[in-house]
Write a protein that binds this DNA or RNA. Structure first.
Lengths: 254, 254
DNA sequence: AATGACCGTTGCACACAATGCAACACTGCG
DNA sequence: CGCAGTGTTGCATTGTGTGCAACGGTCATT
């Protein structure tokens, strides 16, 4: 692993917290100012950091445009989006789409509730993996050994009294989810918010993404939300069909 | 400038074009495969690239979450402030900066007029949403359904004879504002006070804030105030440029 | 005005870390 | 069964990144 690149890349999350000046960056990296300067310069030349008027550095536009491109290249997202919008129009609540990557689960699309009360989430943000309904679906589908590995190295924060407490409980929950083919999160992350989720599968039957509908108690009860399950599953199945049906991208050759 | 980092960063735009395998990356960089491998590994460890099932590399999720976090932590006020001060020095009148949040529009910065006659406003205070020029800009940019939702649940107090009377009239005004890219409030809130406002846009083109210049009739007429419009718009554009991270200096890079 | 403190910046010599090479391991294919 | 195509590893070399110290600018303090 390359030390120089390692250091340079470590600057980016640091700057994501907010603008920082040269000294601060050097300190946080544990390197000499001149070293930090040269790293920042290189990042700057590539547009990854931007130097604002007061000479402090912040993340640059290139990063944002790259992220945008990265999302566009996710073909599940592209296919799923219109379905998510339609579902949102029917039920009114917030709809999420998430994928698993390297031990994390992230939201890659979101259609906001039309009710004024919204839940906090962010595209690109890692979800609360031990409790989120979409995370359960994605992890439940992993091969035994991978699942075990991921589950073991997780923390199990008790967001609420109903959060998943430990690895054992989580594995049981995953088994159940895999069995029934859908998942819920009933107040496991935020006391007053419930979700129902369904998996999206590729041609080989493996789960490639998961989608969920979330709503706070003040709008609908958990039981009412559960009545939407068939609709959510049908939507997920429709996306699965389209995703596995034809070639997603215009792959080169023959 | 650091060669290693330079090469590593060059990989990212390359991968943005689509997934690539090791050989392709090495070729495009003009380096040995082993070198490319080590760079990719480092990028991988930081989550910037993701290795998909067929061993090819893709842009990773970390990129997306970083960009999102960066945008969230971007402080419009901080960036805008010097511009507002400069504008105030040029025109002398009160300058406001406002954002939209949860159905309300709030002033988040203000530079006082240097004329003795000042208008009443307060940072953090919700603005008169149905008449204020900045509010029109912020609401005009919302997606159709959200805009409708906000507009419908508003009251339409008749501060003056020229206040927006009802939802229909407001929607028409918003359409006009969106069309022309700027807004005014001519005596709609207080009989003797006029404003001109312009939008500040983020990297994705969406309106993130709005700024305005306000002055009472006793100092300048509405017509005179309107002559400042180009200057206000230029200032807003300058802030937009800086906010979205486009480098204003001599940089050329790709 | 003069002083000092604080940043960012630059040139340089040294050492270490990144590089390319060649050999190796693995996979699928003819 | 070998062959061609991958990705991967150990190693010697040198080029490249590093820390240091000195410089230059800006700002606040006296």
């Amino acid at each position: 692993m390359s030390q120089t690149v390692d250091r340079a890349l470590s600057i980016l999350p640091l700057l994501a917290e907010g603008p920082a000046d040269l000294g601060r960056v050097a300190d946080r990296l544990g390197v000499h100012k001149s070293t930090a300067l040269r790293l920042l310069r290189t990042l700057h030349d590539h547009g990854f950091v931007y130097r604002q008027a007061d000479q402090r550095y912040r993340l640059g536009a290139r990063l944002i445009s790259l992220a945008q491109e990265a999302m566009e290249n996710l073909d599940v997202r592209e296919i799923a989006h219109p379905h998510l919008v339609r579902l949102n129009e029917q039920v009114g609540h917030t709809v999420h789409l998430a994928v698993h990557e390297e031990g994390e689960v992230l939201y890659i699309d979101k259609v906001e509730s039309r009710y004024p009360v919204r839940m906090y989430s962010r595209i690109g943000k890692p979800v609360a993996i031990t409790v989120a309904a979409v995370a359960k679906l994605l992890l439940a589908d992993l091969p035994e050994n991978e699942r075990r590995a991921v589950v073991d190295q997780l923390d199990y924060p008790m967001y609420t009294a109903r959060s998943t407490p430990n690895a054992d409980g989580f594995l049981k929950e995953l088994a159940k989810v895999r069995e029934q083919g859908w998942a819920t999160d009933l107040g496991g992350h935020e006391e007053s918010i419930n979700c129902v989720a369904a998996p999206i599968r590729g041609a080989d039957g493996r789960v490639v993404a998961a989608m969920s509908v979330s709503a706070p108690n003040v709008v609908v009860t958990a039981d009412e939300l559960l009545t939407l399950l068939p609709l959510v599953r049908r939507t997920a199945d429709a996306i699965s069909g389209e995703y596995s049906g034809r070639t997603p991208v215009k792959e080169v050759t023959t």
